[in-house]
Design a protein around this nucleic acid. Structure first.
Lengths: 143, 143
DNA sequence: ACCAATGATTGGTGACAACCTACAATATTT
DNA sequence: AAATATTGTAGGTTGTCACCAATCATTGGT
């Protein structure tokens, strides 16, 4: 009775949408237990992987509106995970850096996400998981 | 500059979430050109694939709150794509059936979605697309 | 006949994401 | 010097989504 219409499951776009939504939902739920949100991890990852950003760079990289970057950074700095300092060369800009505590927090979030990912991909063996990752990466690189 | 942090792209859960979101967004955009939404297609598909439903059955199958089913069906019936008739055996229930116009509309939505899917999966060859579909199906079947 | 359960319906709520405007400070161009 | 552009910031709007409570009609059981 709870079967899903084959007309829908025959569409890869439908499966992508649905599976993606549950993935997003579960990650959000697990992070939410510690009052964290998805973009906490995204921003910390951007700062950790690519070094300091201005706020506009951060927003551009992650596809977030500059005004929303402000609010997000307010939380990150309040938590001691990122620091805002004025760029001496261009005092309009803010130089955002991740703190050691921020890196530690990021590592924790990544671990949590990986644990959850294991549950989500339970029906797949290691080879299949790698294959899925590869395929998704190809699609992802072409927005 | 618009590169995505490798810390994130290394997570399959992140890719699923992101790719799923763009898939959902694009389908919504294309359907939206004709003032259609995602659940229009879902409901019509459920009715077409499994025959008449009561509204509660519909909601249970698609994971939609019964009260939202009411609102959605209001639109479907207004468009002439579904019909509500009282179940003579149990006059509490509403027997929902899809009309021929509804089937035609569904076919159009499926075609649109498939066309869009071709764009989305452009980086993959046919064999890879089939493989991706298979893998997603396995993950999807295990919620 | 009465009572509890079920189905449909109405009318909300709260969370959240995406976006937009206005503005102050600073830089750049003319 | 003056005009223009960029950056961060504050504040608000919008739409969507999922969910909830109350209500009414109908059914089935006792």
């Amino acid at each position: 009775m709870t079967d899903i219409p084959p007309t829908l499951t025959a569409l890869t776009a439908y499966l992508l949408s649905k599976v993606g939504k549950t993935a997003r939902g579960r990650v959000a739920a697990r992070l939410g237990e510690r009052d964290l949100r998805f973009w906490h991890m995204s921003m910390l990852a951007a700062l950790a992987d690519f070094g300091p950003h201005s706020q506009r760079e951060l927003g551009a990289r992650l596809g977030i509106d500059p005004s929303d970057v402000v609010k997000a950074l307010d939380e990150l700095t309040a938590a001691g995970w990122a620091e805002r300092t004025r760029d001496p060369a261009d005092r309009r800009k803010v130089r955002v850096v991740v703190t050691p505590e921020g890196r530690a927090a990021l590592a924790g979030m990544v671990r949590d996400t990986e644990a959850l990912q294991d549950e989500l991909l339970a029906p797949l063996n290691p080879r299949e998981r790698a294959r899925l990752h590869d395929l998704l990466l190809k699609v992802f690189d072409r927005p």
